[in-house]
Design a protein around this nucleic acid. Structure first.
Lengths: 228, 228
DNA sequence: CGTGGGGTTGATGGAATTCAATTGCTGTGG
DNA sequence: CCACAGCAATTGAATTCCATCAACCCCACG
């Protein structure tokens, strides 16, 4: 089940993206977590290729995962194939905890990703750490509910860009490791709508599309105003 | 900040609703939690009237809350007043945990509700219990993301009815303690759309509307088929 | 009996989806 | 180096679904 280190030479997606989250310079909002989760535990780092499955819905949950570099998506499917990505996870973030020992979601690497795997996190301080990470994820999910449930397409895309920006350290230059399909499935929109909204932001002078996967924020205030 | 026991004679909403969740006959999905959360701790039960605030966004989080009876809504607001209810909580469920010591949401009683308040849950087994409850909430929120992000109005209402049914023990008769406005703000729809979808389910012979707040499921299979 | 809030129903407009065509990018092979 | 294939992204036109606006109904309550 664990990924064997793939051919590291063939780094999927644009290499820019592959590097953007590397180096653990950014722990996201998990500053309260130790740099290494449960450091007293022996653990392994696995490399996952772009689009490689980390775990599947229904599988037994027997480990916790921390992103070393790269990006991971968690998602769920409807019977007819409609997909909802509930979260993207970047370097430093922990995912994979489940309430009842079974995974309720799929986890896949968005781009080449290094994942630290913690089996049986039974250490004593670990409960507290896991709780902290779970609460982060909970707040994120609940805030995302507001975006999806009550904001229109333009606001969703703006919120997404600002979120990605914050998680990448607040630079003007934002890298989008994921495809438009991923963004759409995260925001509850179609790829066409995502594209249209990005074009609109661009023609409004709020952002610049260096290329399809790199966005530069020109008017931060306007972008934030969009999210109300 | 704590609610004083309100005039218990004036039970808000229909009294039916007030009773429906009482008696702790149903713990929702928290079966793994002890009947009394952290029982070794001294704690108090507060009564909240319908629509009474339990805590507000931005407030310091200094307690955990367990619903004894009644229903609670957690929600967040946009600047222009749009509201997203991220969760309803019924008897047995725990809410109020926050990642950084501040509440990120509002909590209000939907109808008259008894809430057990746990201050400083520092007990040792408590971490594990809290984690369990937080993970429940996380799975719920993420599953709700799928409903809101990828299902249409009819599917959302059907999913809502099935969820309420499950949480009330699976009876054919479902009570809806919350207003159409609450349901709409939970499902990311307007009250008109919620009403229309309920009418459609009714005219399709899938449900019966005993009255505005009581639904009887006539064709369970059809209802489940709607959620795909 | 009148009043008011919650709920339902109808008509209309608009935002996002769907379907379709085109462009742009990346990697491959001649 | 250029041509081409294949995929991702963009753009346009038509359609659909839901929100909006508005009228009305239903009851609980004074």
């Amino acid at each position: 089940m664990l990924a064997q280190a793939a051919t590291a030479s063939h780094f999927p997606g644009n290499t820019l993206t592959g590097h953007s989250f590397a180096g653990r310079d950014r722990l996201g909002d998990l500053g309260r977590m130790p740099a290494s989760f449960a450091p007293e535990q022996p653990h392994q780092v696995a490399f996952y290729e772009a689009n490689q499955e980390i775990y599947a819905q229904g599988e037994e949950a027997k480990a916790l995962y921390q992103v070393e570099y790269g990006v991971v998506r968690l998602y769920r499917l409807l019977a007819d194939g409609r997909r909802q990505i509930s979260a993207f996870h970047v370097a430093g973030e922990v995912f994979g905890f489940e309430a009842d020992g079974r995974h309720h979601f799929f986890a896949e690497a968005v781009c080449g990703a290094g994942i630290r795997v913690f089996r049986q996190p039974a250490g004593e301080g670990t409960w507290r750490q896991t709780l902290s990470a779970a609460l982060e994820a909970l707040v994120r999910a609940q805030e995302h509910l507001l975006v999806i449930g009550r904001q229109n397409a333009a606001e969703r895309v703006a919120a997404f860009l600002l979120d990605m920006r914050k998680r990448q350290g607040g630079e003007r230059q934002i890298e989008l490791p994921m495809s438009r399909t991923d963004i759409g499935d995260y925001l509850g929109l179609t790829i066409e709508t995502v594209s249209r909204m990005l074009s609109k932001l661009k023609s409004s002078g709020i952002i610049r599309l260096t290329n399809a996967r790199v966005v530069e924020v020109l008017d931060e205030a306007a972008l934030e105003a969009l999210c109300e």
